[in-house]
Structures are given as C-alpha cells and as structure tokens.
C-alpha cells in the first residue's frame, strides 16, 4: 500500500521511528498591535481603496440600505443569508434574491446575477481584506461568480491583521470547511504584466462599514 510505503520512506529518510513524537515546535509568535477602532477602520478603507475597492462608512442600517439600493437598481442581485443583510433590509429590496439553501439553485442564480451581496465575518485593517467563513449564513459563490461584490462589515469586526485573525481563530477548520480572505477585486497580470481586473472573480468590490 503506497501510504505505508511512503510513510516508511519518510521515516527512514529522517531517521525517525513510527509513533515517535516530534521535537518541540518553534514558538508561535503572533503579535497584535494596539490600534484603536477608528484607526483600524481608516486603515482598512485606505488599503482597500488602494486596491481599487470602493468603500463607504454607514452610520445606520438605513444608510447601508441606501447604498445597496442605489448600487442594485435595475440589477439582478443575490444576497447571502447573513442576519446583517436582513437587519438592514437588503433582502427586501425588489430585485434581490436570497435565502438559498440548495447549492445548484444558488449556483444558477449567482451565475446569472450582476451583483452578489454578503457580510464578512472579519476584515483586516492592514491589508484591506475581507474574511468570509462558509456557513449556513455565507456561501462561497456569492462573493465569486457575480461581476460585482458588495460586502457589509460591522465595524466591530475590523481586526488589525492576520496575527489577530489567527489568534481569534487558532484553527479555522474547527468551524468551517472554507475560510477565504478577499483582498480587493479579482485581478491578473499574466499578459505583459498589464493589470486587468475581474478575470474570474468580481471586477468591482464595494464594502460598507456599518
């Protein structure tokens, strides 16, 4: 059986025996800088703008709804099952379809949609990244198939960066099969190093911080 054979080869190469515990691993060094919330929000917005992301700070659910309504006018829109979107009234907008539980139907809807709306579980201040964890509330394809992605991020969810994320989630696999970090719109520079946005994923990304 290749498994046994390969593991045996690895052990032989390393001079280790089966079941031998490993040496002590190097210490984990995660450092969380002390950055106040306002500065984290500012840094997030600044980083995302640099990547051509569009951002908006909303002071009420109504402002979120206004932004979404304007963006979505006359468009086909799929929204995730996140409670945040419901609270803002986004799922009640006339052209927004939501509440998908079937993968095939969701996929079909996303493939035909102009805009996908999600929340984000976290955002990273230093890189302008969204963190989306797959769950009954958030699917994978809504932030991926439509050419425009709108994300609503509660301000308290904006972290300093990767170190803080992995301190909060020392092992993301315990709660999800998929965690994705999204840092700006989809891009490529494979031909002559010329930047083109929207090659496979969304060409536009909008984030409303609530």
């Amino acid at each position: 059986m290749p498994r046994e054979k390969i593991l045996h080869k690895v052990r032989t190469a390393l001079g280790r025996s089966s079941g031998q515990p490993p040496a002590a691993p190097p210490p984990v060094r995660l450092r969380i800088p002390d950055v106040p919330l306002d500065a984290r929000i500012e840094s997030f917005i600044c980083a995302l703008n640099k990547l051509n992301g569009k951002t908006c700070v909303a002071h009420s659910p109504q402002e979120v709804l206004d932004y979404a309504a304007q963006l979505c006018e006359g468009k086909r829109v799929v929204a995730s099952n996140s409670p945040v979107l419901r609270e803002c009234g986004i799922v009640e907008l006339p052209n927004v379809r939501s509440n998908y539980t079937d993968a095939d139907k969701l996929r079909e809807a996303c493939a035909a949609a102009d805009i996908g709306i999600t929340s984000a579980d976290y955002a990273l201040g230093d890189t302008g990244s969204l963190v989306i964890i797959a769950s009954p509330r958030e699917a994978r394809l809504i932030s991926l198939l439509p050419p425009v992605h709108l994300a609503i991020v509660p301000r308290s969810r904006i972290l300093t960066g990767l170190d803080e994320l992995f301190t909060l989630l020392p092992n993301p696999a315990e709660q999800t099969s998929s965690m994705v970090l999204i840092t700006g719109p989809s891009r490529t520079a494979d031909i002559e190093q010329i930047l083109v946005r929207g090659v496979h994923g969304p060409r536009e990304i909008h984030v409303v911080v609530l």
């Binding site: 890189t127 990244s129 993301p172 999800t176 994705v180 999204i182 840092t183 994923g201």
Partner: peptide
C-alpha cells in the same frame, strides 16, 4: 502584494 487577492483555507 501584502496579501494576494484570494487566500483560501479549505478543510474538507
């Protein structure tokens, strides 16, 4: 790039 556009952490 400080981070690439997508970083996927897939477990199962």
């Amino acid at each position: 790039q400080p981070l690439t556009v997508y970083t996927s952490f897939l477990s199962g």
